[in-house]
Design a protein around this nucleic acid. Structure first.
Lengths: 188, 188
DNA sequence: GCAAACCTTTAACATATGTTAAAAAAACTC
DNA sequence: GAGTTTTTTTAACATATGTTAAAGGTTTGC
């Protein structure tokens, strides 16, 4: 819990009172590997803070499944379209390891946004941080080859390859598993 | 001006008082085609609302220039990294047509965020809207072929091809101009 | 209105990545 | 721990996109 609390406060400075309005509504959840947190085409009503474990967001197009996000300890897990527009999301999110999470109800959080200036700014920062992260990813995608992106990913998350199967990593990189295998075998 | 005012209010409901705090700090700017609004590696201090014209965001990697955003009438133009983190941005933004814009100083806006609940939530919505847009773009990138993305773009912005040169559109789609030419010649 | 600069298309060839399938390796299961 | 399932690698071939270069088209500016 302390870890998550620190993460929450690091995002935007909150007074004790405002912080407690959020912290008081967090519920601890322990869920097993494989559990599906969010499903596509549903309006999701919770937001999760991931304390332990790895999560993966993916969606389908025809038969093809594509992973487009990995969540690690400290990350916030939400279905953007449910969270922002109260509309069904397009992503599935599943746990790749047994996980410890803290959840908060989206309705509760939205009410806090409307009533508390500090929390509204905290929510602003949350969206802004995700925005920067997503844009960086998008730009890296245009500039780098698959091989470069793989090595970037290895550097940023060295434990990823130990903990996540390569098929998921390949689809996250926008390549097939076969291509990833080739990349891995070439240099070292 | 009315157009931009409507856009601002559509994002998040603002009382007359809060709205005027923003509107009162907007400055009209008319700038010619080719004008560079933002430059990479600089901290940009303004945000622009585009009333008329088209803008393009691009960045460089080695020699390669890549367009990753087009802005149209009604869009907000900002350098995410300057706006959010007060750090140098990685993008250039230039006008592709003579343009009419309204600018507001980022420092002013940030102060309003910290002091006005409605404006803080307005800022939250601004970031959230961009986040959804960026994520959709990112996912479309993974699922669609270059040809599909070109036709999607044509459908979403039919005037784009008349108004923007194809080299920019090609780099926006993540392909070379030669490939775009091939795509354009094949179907019709 | 002509020349220069810029933009777009086309062609020929090179390369990276995809597809399919099979073999090898690793991870589960009872 | 032997057998089953899942994951990863390797191979052979197919395809989309990149690269370079040249030829047409447009636009711009004097």
């Amino acid at each position: 819990m302390e870890n998550i609390q620190k993460r929450i406060r690091d995002l935007y400075p909150l007074s004790e009172a405002s912080f407690n309005k959020i912290a008081g509504r967090l519920t601890k959840v322990e869920l097993p590997r494989g559990h599906v947190l969010f499903q596509a085409n549903r309006i999701e009503t919770s937001i999760y803070f991931l304390e332990k474990g790895i999560a993966r967001a993916y969606c389908y197009d025809a038969e093809k499944e594509i992973t487009f996000w990995f969540g690690f300890e400290g990350d916030v897990i939400f279905s953007y379209n449910s969270y922002v527009n109260n509309e069904p999301g397009y992503e599935n999110v599943a746990l790749l390891e047994d996980a410890v999470l803290y959840s908060i109800d989206n309705t509760v959080l939205q009410a806090l946004f409307r009533s508390d200036l500090e929390i509204a700014n905290w929510g602003r920062k949350l969206a802004e941080r995700e925005l920067i992260r997503t844009e960086k990813l998008f730009i890296s995608r245009q500039f780098r080859t698959a091989s470069e992106r793989y090595h970037e990913l290895l550097k940023a998350h060295p434990q990823l390859v130990q903990r996540v199967q390569l098929g998921h990593i390949a689809s996250y990189l926008g390549i097939t598993q076969v291509t990833l295998s080739r990349i891995r075998s070439e240099n070292n």
